[in-house]
Simulated assay, not measured.
Amino acid sequence: MNYEWLDEYCLSKQGAIKDFKEEWNATRYFVGEKIFLMVGGDKYNKSIITIKCEPFFGQMLRDEYEHIVPGYHMNKLHWNSVYFDGSVPDNVVKQMIDMSYRIVLNSLSRKLQNEILKDA
């Protein structure tokens, strides 16, 4: 899988923005100044997507797909990394992105959530 749709999909989320953090060599996607997804590499420079998930769901995915591992350089309970060269289907990655966006959005203050969603 190469996930060519990833950038467009992430930026289609209400209030989503991205930046590139040079020190990490990573593209980060934010909602309300909190990261919901990061694209970078592991210690072998293999491309990965790191996504926040509910712990039970993340563990279930790691058990099912060998190319989903605990989040690289992130909290292993809440974050998962997906290898670009793996075989994780697009629909599973999109489900993970949707969950991550929702978790991060819901962690924001009600006022900020309302500002982000006002045009929805």
Rank of each mutant, 00 (worst) to 15 (best):
K13I: 10
K13R: 12
K13N: 08
K13H: 09
A16E: 10
A16H: 03
I17Y: 13
D19L: 11
D19W: 09
F20S: 08
K21V: 14
K21H: 15
K21W: 13
K21C: 06
E22L: 15
E23C: 12
E23Y: 14
E23R: 15
E23T: 15
E23I: 13
E23D: 14
W24H: 09
N25H: 14
A26N: 09
A26D: 05
A26K: 07
A26R: 09
T27G: 08
R28W: 07
R28K: 14
Y29V: 04
Y29H: 11
F30P: 05
V31L: 00
V31K: 00
G32F: 05
G32V: 07
E33C: 13
E33K: 15
K34Q: 13
K34E: 12
I35C: 08
I35P: 08
F36V: 04
L37R: 09
M38L: 15
V39N: 00
G40L: 02
G41C: 11
D42N: 13
D42A: 06
K43A: 14
Y44V: 03
N45Q: 15
N45P: 10
S47K: 15
S47W: 04
S47Y: 05
S47F: 08
I48F: 04
I49H: 03
T50K: 05
K52A: 05
C53G: 11
C53L: 14
E54P: 01
P55S: 03
F57Q: 09
G58Q: 09
Q59E: 11
Q59L: 07
Q59W: 00
M60R: 13
L61I: 05
L61N: 01
R62M: 01
D63T: 10
D63M: 05
Y65V: 03
H67V: 02
H67Y: 11
I68Y: 00
V69R: 08
V69I: 14
P70S: 10
G71D: 04
Y72K: 04
Y72N: 02
Y72P: 01
H73M: 02
H73W: 07
M74T: 11
N75Y: 05
K76Y: 09
K76D: 09
L77C: 06
N80Q: 10
S81A: 08
F84W: 10
F84P: 02
D85L: 04
G86Y: 06
G86T: 03
S87C: 05
S87R: 12
S87T: 14
V88G: 06
V88D: 08
D90V: 07
D90S: 12
D90I: 02
N91A: 06
V92H: 02
V92E: 02
V93A: 08
K94M: 11
K94A: 00
Q95W: 01
Q95S: 13
M96Q: 01
M99C: 06
